[in-house]
């Protein structure tokens, strides 16, 4: 239902999952970072979020959000990028490390121990919100008025 489902490469999907993960949860699932060389030290900044006029028309600037980014290289030579919402530098660094590792031979293990866990938790969180919303679905009936008879 959301944008990350269709037409995304595996890498886009894991980068998105890592960005949306709660920093604490990601640190629990993947506590120890392997040695790495920072190509861009974690940096806090703002991204201008855009909307579309009428939901589908020309873009306009809605407002900014805080984003932290990081780029690094592992000893293997793999380069990882992290762009994560918020101001948590460790989150951006951990996301970048995992992006790099997911390009190597640890990918299957990390997919099972980190990404699939994050995906399941996110899906459960969304399903709960959707189920609560569904319980507030209403049917409005218009009352018969005199002139209709």
């Amino acid at each position: 239902m959301t944008a990350q489902a269709p037409l995304q490469t595996p890498r886009q999907i894991w980068i998105g999952l890592l960005a949306r993960a709660k920093p604490q949860r990601l640190a629990e699932l993947f506590p120890d970072l392997p040695p790495h060389e920072l190509l861009r030290a974690p940096e806090i900044g703002a991204v201008m979020v855009r909307g579309r006029i009428g939901g589908s028309g020309q873009p306009f600037n809605l407002g900014e959000m805080t984003v932290t980014r990081c780029a690094l290289r592992l000893a293997s030579g793999a380069v990882g990028h992290g762009h994560v919402q918020g101001r948590d530098k460790d989150h951006a660094r951990r996301a970048a490390v995992l992006d790099a590792l997911m390009q190597g031979d640890q990918a299957d293990a990390l997919r099972a121990s980190v990404l699939e866990v994050l995906q399941a938790e996110e899906t459960a969180r969304r399903a709960t919100r959707a189920a609560k919303a569904a319980a507030t679905r209403v049917e409005f009936f218009t009352m018969v008025r005199g002139e209709d008879q």
Partner: peptide
């Protein structure tokens, strides 16, 4: 005080996970 890292693609409100 924040550096501008860029601009997003326009958000797709037709794909909003609606609660209301």
């Amino acid at each position: 005080t924040l550096p501008r890292l860029g601009a997003s693609r326009p958000v797709e409100t037709a794909q909003m996970a609606v609660i209301r």
